[in-house]
Every structure is written in C-alpha cells, then in structure tokens.
Write a protein that binds this DNA or RNA. Structure first.
Lengths: 194, 194
DNA sequence: GTAGTTTATTACCATAGGTCAACTTTTTTG
DNA sequence: CAAAAAAGTTGACCTATGGTAATAAACTAC
C-alpha cells in the first residue's frame, strides 16, 4: 500500500477528497514505527506533533512531584494521541507518551494541521467533532472519578476497553483509575470471590 | 445597545464580520434573563442549545444514583455552558444546570450553530480552538483529581476562580472538588490555623 | 427585627484506599 | 532452561475523607 492510500483509507476513511487534497494530505503525514517500551514524548519537550495510531497501544502519563505516575489516556488503533495541552498551547509537555505495544503511527505537525484546516474545510469540521467527542468522554470520566468507587471505575474500565486489558500492565490500569496496584489487586480478588 | 451590537461586541469581540454575517449571527441568538436559583436545564431533557454567559453565574451538576450532587462546571461571564455531552451527541441530558447568580445569557441552537459554521468558516475555527482549550483544562482537572489531595485541589480552585468563591455555596465547591462539605470545612479550618 | 429556614461548622466514629514490606508469580534475558 | 528482573499479590497497619448528628451561624421572609 502506498502512503497515499494508507492515509486516505485509514485515517480519513469516512471522508472523501479530490486529487489535490489527497496530495496535500499525504505530504503532511509521516509514517513511523515504534518499538515496545520506547518513549514517543517526554515531559519538558515542545510538542509539535500529534499522532494517529494505526496499530499498537500507547499511553500518555503524568509524573507528579511525588514521583507517582498517572495515566491520562490510552490510545489504540484509530485513536489520536499527543500531549494536547502542550500541543494546543504551544507550551512544553507535562506528560510522557510511552509505547506499550509495538506501534505504527502517522505523525502530523500543528503547522501542517492548521494549513490543512485552511485548505480543506471539511477537515476542520472533522476535527472539531472529534474534539467534541473527546470533550464529552473526558467529562464523563470526571463525573465517574467524582462519583464512583474504585471498584466501579475498574468495572467500567474493563467494559469500555475490553481489549486493552490484555496488553497493559496492572499498574497502568491502576494509575488510570487513580489507585495503587495493591488496591487494584484487592479489588480484583474481591470481584473473583463474588 | 441593540442585540446586534451586543452579540458582535460581547460574544465575538475578538472576531470581525461583514454586514451579512452580522445579520446571520444576530438571527441565531436569543437573549434571556435567568433569576437566581432557577433551573436552565434538567436531566432527561433533550439539549438543543448552548448558552453564552454575559453576566451572572451558573453551574452544571450531575446527580448520582445515590442522590449525591457532583458539580462538573461553573460558568461566569464570557463562558459557555450546556450539557455538552448531550448537546453534541443529540442525547438526553445527564446533568442539571442551575443559575447561582441572576444571569444574562445568549442562547443558540445546535442547528443554528452548524449553519453558522457553514456560512462563516472563521466561526468553526473559533469554536474548535475553544474546544481545544476546554479539552486541555479538563485534562488538567483529571490530572489534579488523580494526583492531588483535597487541600491542594481547594487551593488551586480558589486560585483559578478567585471571584467565584464569594458567589457560590460551600457545597457547590465541595461537590466540584469531590469531597463533602464537612471535609471542606475541616480543610478551611486547617488552612486558617497554619 | 424575630421566627424560620438554609448553610456551615464541629465532633466522633467508620471505611476506602494508601503505605510498607514480604512473598509469589510471570516475564525477560543470556 | 536457569537466573535475574519485573510485575502482581497479600497482610498489617495507617490516614484522609466519609457518615451521622448536634450545634452554630447566616440568610429570608413576614
């Protein structure tokens, strides 16, 4: 498959473009492979790019001043990932992005993104809607964190991401749920016993 | 001030429009006043509109199955408010919106919004960027909820919203921070003593 | 301005989840 | 496949925050 076909049929499979638009798109993306356990981004770096995950699994996490990790987002096939706060604001990353399962990504810079929005207005709609969905799911997560016990959040998690569970470490899930690995162990034990 | 001037000089003060665009804009918005303690939206309703807050203070909150309230968002002057999950997805509201301080709002429907995006492309950029900022701040809040103690979250809150504190009840703040009013009282007491 | 209502504080006990540390299991590596 | 490293589990104890309830303070309304 050419890069051209890949970008158009994978990343933007719901949209259609004319030949010039396709050329523009293809020129904006760069394909990359990432081995397991590698870091795609480290806190402190400027964030020029966002990444479309074609295959594999990554996570964005924050290391608090006390040294504890907090997983903010997992990304699997067909998700986008970056430190969006830094990406949008042009500020330095607060987060790290780590490859959990060997991944194939398509990278695009913020500048190219903005040019594409100008050149292909339907892309702006497309990403605005994507933002709206992300916004909604973040809001749900805030509510869940405020209103539910760790056990319930764990149950929602494995329901929402049934496939992620096999790939990720226990402490990834724990740090996503906001609990320790020990607590997660205990929760699992109780769930099995019931 | 005419509605025309208000919409253009208040809501979209950072943008400029030609006369036809201004007409379009003005026709899309409706101004409304809301008394203190009234409900702008209740869970279960379909959400057709979003609201720009010109003056006053509102909050969006969720009532969990156990009856407890969780404040998701406060909105003061120059903020937008709605149950965005429902607004974006065309689903029923999960949240309530309550007027905390007598408010002046400008309301616009999702349909009109989508028409405006088509007619005035700079609006789509404008709202996309707004979404990006909201997304970033939600992400920060998730990190804060995961990594900080209630005391620290309270301190960040009063720093971020120095003006809100006078207007809102203790239990509004507590339910935003994810703690009980009793805990908030204790936290305040300890802070005064130090 | 007094009675009534709502909101905030305080005290006491309960509990979910954290901490530390030992131990077991799984995975990785040579 | 054996040794080492990493990840997961368990137990004993601790701490922050929740729950209940009584009291105090602050609004509201007549």
């Amino acid at each position: 498959m050419t890069l051209e076909t890949e970008v158009v049929t994978t990343i933007f499979k719901d949209l259609s473009f004319n030949p010039e638009e396709i050329q523009l798109l293809v020129r904006s993306f760069e394909k990359l492979h990432l081995p397991k356990n590698s870091l795609l981004l480290e806190a402190g770096q400027y964030v020029h790019d966002q990444y479309y995950v074609a295959e594999g699994c990554l996570r964005t996490y924050y290391i608090a001043p006390d040294g504890k990790e907090h997983t903010v987002q997992f990304a699997i096939s067909d998700w986008w990932i970056s430190d969006y706060t830094a990406f949008f604001n042009g500020s330095k990353a607060l987060m790290h992005i780590e490859c959990i399962q060997e991944a194939t990504l398509y990278k695009i810079s913020k500048n190219d993104m903005e040019s594409l929005y100008q050149a292909i207005p339907q892309l702006e709609s497309y990403f605005r809607k994507k933002m709206e969905r992300s916004f909604a799911s973040f809001q749900k997560r805030i509510i869940a964190n405020l209103s539910q016990s760790a056990t319930k959040r764990y149950l929602s998690f494995i329901q929402t991401y049934p496939n992620i569970e096999q790939n990720v470490k226990n402490y990834h899930i724990a740090s996503y749920l906001g609990i320790t690995t020990q607590s997660l162990s205990r929760i699992r034990k109780e769930l099995v016993q019931e």
